[in-house]
Design a protein around this nucleic acid. Structure first.
Lengths: 219, 219
DNA sequence: CTTTTATTTTAGATTTGTCTAAAAATAATT
DNA sequence: AATTATTTTTAGACAAATCTAAAATAAAAG
């Protein structure tokens, strides 16, 4: 069976919202997709008929195994294309998200596999998110929020909490990227800002909001 | 302004039909797009409002300069992606057309320019068709139909008349591709088949239909 | 120069994905 | 437990792209 771009975007949105919460609400979905709750209800009925999810009215929605499989295939394509754009075509990591949103809907299975092989089967995309393999399996990062990193513990940046241009622009300015090594020197309770030190650099403070958008792995 | 995939496909179809004929008829378009004449009429009215073509009812249609510009941008993307698929991802030249039909609608201008640079600004796609540059300019091949090539004149294959899998499969089997050097040894009037000879191979005959689908440049 | 045939257009209906406004169900508060 | 507020669903309408069937125009034939 084949699905429209719109249907794929719904499946992907449900997949991402489902990570934390179990069931996803109509309102959450409407907000994420910049549409209205009424439209979401219509689409959920359609996707239920297509057997991608379980949905009971007023009870929220949850992907079934078919739905998860489709979601992982889309996420795989998105992250492989992002890797391609940055690694092969020299895009900045802050300008690939929108383009990948389009490329992820190209249907050819052969294209995905050839692209994956050409790129050398990468395991993480430029934002540190793991790339599912052709069976939907991916490495689970046990990374922790920078806000929770103990003082003076060396760690490596492994991911960012959002793909927004604003965040990536700020990180570029501060010379923080995936694999940057750093440690927390002080935590200030007044505004929850933290002082960090990157190797061979003077330490500086970053805001609570920024710290919460960074994931690290202690090394 | 931005255009839907459907609108882009209409513009591309008109562009290709317009090459020989001046004005394109509703029926021709319907046949090429596998749709009905009534649907074509509707769309032509819409594209006229969007100022991409000149159209008077019962008089056929013709792209204006804006329409041509858009058509060339789409053709450029199509042929660059075909080149990428064959050259970078190792696809066979007979399996790239359908994938490129999807990729040609990806909108990012930056992506096209980066891809073009990565590929080394190729001038021809894998089927021998010229790739327009970012201004819409392309090399005009003065190639001739194989059926019109004089006997014993050495020539080089420069293009094929269609992208159909059937044709490309046959060419692969006969080891004929872009840049293959050959000459015509005999022409048979009974069925208009012709005998050709490829360097270092025994000569063999090919059908009228196949000869008409091959373009060559005398060398 | 009529009549026949082929092409093209209109009119009205359908599908997909969306919307607004109102009704129904659930959750929160007093 | 009753009332209020929030969330979710229904009902009906709309735009895009398509279709069928019928009407209008143009081209071809006699």
């Amino acid at each position: 069976m084949s699905f429209s771009v719109t249907e794929e975007n719904y499946i992907k949105a449900i997949y991402h919202l489902q990570q934390e919460d179990g069931n996803v609400s109509t309102n959450e979905l409407a907000a994420m997709l910049h549409t209205k709750p009424a439209s979401v209800t219509d689409m959920l009925k359609k996707l239920k008929v297509k057997k991608l999810l379980s949905y009971e009215r007023y009870k929220g929605v949850r992907l079934n195994s078919e739905g998860k499989k489709l979601a992982l295939a889309i996420v795989r394509k998105h992250r492989l294309w992002e890797y391609f754009l940055v690694d092969t075509l020299q895009f900045g990591w802050d300008e690939v998200h929108e383009v990948a949103e389009e490329l992820e809907h190209i249907s050819s299975k052969k294209l995905v596999e050839k692209l994956d092989a050409f790129l050398g089967h990468p395991k993480f995309d430029p934002h540190g998110d793991p790339i599912p393999d052709s069976h939907g399996k991916m490495i689970v990062q046990q990374h922790v929020n920078l806000i929770d990193l103990p003082i003076n513990k060396m760690a490596e940046v492994t991911g960012v909490g959002s793909q927004s241009t604003e965040l990536l622009e700020l990180l570029k300015h501060k010379h923080i990227g995936i694999a940057t090594k750093l440690e927390v020197k002080r935590k200030f309770n007044f505004d929850h800002s933290i002082e960090i030190k990157i190797k061979n650099q003077n330490s500086f403070t970053i805001s609570q909001q920024l710290a919460q958008a960074l994931f690290v792995k202690p090394v």
